[in-house]
Every structure is written in structure tokens, then in C-alpha cells.
């Protein structure tokens, strides 16, 4: 579980070796400071070719000129970006992707917070089994889980009948936004619980006892003591789910279908089916830009809320 903890600062310890040179053994220090190219060169080279080159290539391609039905022509044009940003239909896809991400993030938070809190405050020997229980659906492929939801959300599916009984929906849930958000929430809930667990675990239970001694009820304690203390984790978890949801492909493709497109499915369609690679590349880059912008916004809010970084 340790390695999965996203709240763990990974960068800090990386600076250990060089930052504290003990005067006792300078020769040893010197040697270990020298890079061993035998270890690094093959890996670094391969990695560069495998990742950096394709991504750089995608950026370049987003400026190329698309040729209908054929391979794109090398050149420089901003038309691909203009096509995405100037078209109501594609802008609508981006907007839908954003709202779907936000809705999924908030729903995951609403469901995940009580669960994470419940696990943290459960008896010690129950904690690991409970956490593993929550993480188990995560071990099932997103494709299979989405397939499970296709069964549940179908016109005569259990969830559809249940929600229809309450009067929340009148038709089926497949190929609708509510159905998509329900399935997406299911896919990302384990991640949210994992992040929140990492934060809630570090909150001193004596603070809650103090609140209880002063007469606060358990829900009041959670709302006014635990939740504010967990706010950095709440924001981090929501951001993580939101960005993952915005770039997810499988669940939207299976549950929402071709009528309710999101950016990821549209990129796939443009690239693989319509062979309009430059447009697909431009969309991919705009999607990354949108995700980065949302992340930057969250980080700013986080900085406001946590003065000086108490964690």
C-alpha cells in the first residue's frame, strides 16, 4: 500500500545523498556522484525514443495540413486548432468532457469521504481488509466493469428500474449523461478512497475526541474538524479523479456511445476512423492544455487554503 500513496512526497528524499556530505568519507561520495552510463545510457536512450519522440511528433503533427482520406501533408497551419476552437460541435464536446469530469469528481468525493473516514476509524485489524475490499473492483479491467454497468443501466436493468421506481428517471440510462456519470463514479471511486485514506489517517483522533468532549456530535465533528483538516487531500483526490475522468476513453465509449462524445472518443474517431491525424493531434494537445489548466487552478486554490503548506 505504501507505494500507492499519492500523498507521499517523492522528491524530498531524492536529494538525500548529495545534500548531506559527511566529511568522513569524501572519496566514496565522489565516486557515487559520478554517473554510471552503463546503467543509464541504454534505458535513457530507449525511453527517449519510446516516449519523448512520439509526443514531440504529435505536437508537430498538430500543425500539419490534413488530406482527406490520406496521410497528412507536412507544413505549418493553425487551421486544426481553429477547427477545434471555432466549431460549436467540438467545443460542446470539450464542455461535456469538463462537466463530466467535475460531476464524477464531486460524486466520488461525496461517496468516498464517508467510506475513507469509516475505514480510518474502524478497528485496526479491520483497516487493511476493508481497504483491500474497496480496492478490489480496481483490479477488474475498466472494460469489464463498464460491461457490468451496461447490464445494470440497460432499459430493464436493475439500477434503471430502481431509479425509475423512485421517479428520478423516466427512460433508460444507457447512452445518457446520468448513466455515464454513475459508471464513471464507480470506476474512479477506489482512487478517491485511497487518496482520502492517506490524508485522514494522519489526522490525530484526539482532535475528534476533544471536539466530542466539548459537546460536538459525530457529524458536526466530521464537518467542522475532520473535513477542514483533510481539505488538501480532498482537493488532491478530486483533482486526480477529475483529470483521469476527463481523459478516460473506455467507459464513455461503452456507456455513452457515439451520440454523447467526449474528447477522448473524438480523438480516437478522428485518428483511427477518419484518419484526420492533424485534427486529432490538435485535440489531444488542447485536451492536455485543458487538464493542465484545471490542475493549475486547483493548485492555486490549494495554496490559498493551506498557508505555508502545513503538511
Amino acid at each position: 500500500m505504501d507505494t500507492l500513496d499519492p500523498t507521499r512526497p517523492t522528491g524530498a528524499a531524492g536529494a538525500t545523498a548529495p545534500a548531506a556530505p559527511p566529511p568522513a568519507s569524501p572519496p566514496a561520495r565522489e565516486r557515487s556522484r559520478r554517473p554510471s552510463w552503463r546503467l543509464l545510457a541504454p534505458v535513457g536512450g530507449l525511453y527517449g525514443v519510446q516516449f519523448v519522440v512520439p509526443l514531440a511528433f504529435l505536437v508537430v503533427m498538430s500543425f500539419w495540413i490534413p488530406v482527406a482520406g490520406g496521410s497528412p501533408e507536412a507544413g505549418f497551419t493553425l487551421d486544426n486548432y481553429r477547427d477545434v476552437l471555432g466549431d460549436g460541435f467540438t467545443l460542446g464536446i470539450f464542455w461535456r468532457t469538463l462537466t463530466m469530469g467535475v460531476a464524477t469528481g464531486l460524486l466520488c468525493l461525496a461517496l468516498g469521504f464517508p467510506v475513507a473516514y469509516g475505514i480510518v476509524r474502524a478497528p485496526r485489524r479491520w483497516r487493511t481488509p476493508l481497504l483491500l475490499l474497496v480496492l478490489m473492483p480496481f483490479l477488474v479491467s475498466a472494460v469489464i466493469r463498464s460491461f457490468g454497468w451496461m447490464v445494470l443501466l440497460a432499459d430493464n436493468g436493475i439500477v434503471t428500474r430502481l431509479l425509475r421506481g423512485i421517479g428520478l428517471v423516466d427512460g433508460g440510462l444507457m447512452y445518457t449523461m446520468p448513466g455515464l456519470i454513475i459508471a464513471m463514479t464507480h470506476v474512479f471511486l477506489p482512487i478517491m478512497v485511497l487518496v482520502l485514506y492517506g490524508v485522514l489517517e494522519r489526522i490525530d483522533p484526539r482532535l475528534e475526541e476533544a471536539a466530542a468532549n466539548l459537546g460536538a456530535s459525530r457529524p458536526r465533528t466530521v464537518a467542522f474538524v475532520v473535513f477542514p483538516l483533510a481539505l488538501p487531500g480532498v482537493l488532491a483526490g478530486t483533482l486526480l479523479v477529475l483529470t483521469l475522468a476527463m481523459s478516460s476513453f473506455v467507459t464513455p465509449a461503452m456507456i455513452a456511445g457515439p451520440r454523447l462524445r467526449v474528447v477522448a472518443t473524438e480523438i480516437y474517431d478522428q485518428a483511427v476512423n477518419l484518419l484526420n491525424w492533424p485534427l486529432a493531434a490538435a485535440m489531444a494537445i488542447l485536451l492536455m492544455a485543458l487538464i493542465l489548466a484545471v490542475s493549475a487552478l486547483f493548485t492555486r486554490v490549494l495554496m490559498r487554503i493551506v498557508p505555508g503548506g502545513t503538511r
Binding site: 509526443l55 481523459s247 477522448a264 489531444a284 494537445i285 485536451l287 492536455m288
Partner: peptide
């Protein structure tokens, strides 16, 4: 990086 972006960039390179 979004998986779609990874997949697309690799395929573009292979092509």
C-alpha cells in the same frame, strides 16, 4: 499524459 494522447502519439510515430 492522457492515455489517448499516448496511444495516438505512438501510432502516429509507427505510421
Amino acid at each position: 499524459t492522457p492515455e489517448v494522447v499516448l496511444g495516438a502519439s505512438l501510432l502516429a510515430m509507427f505510421l
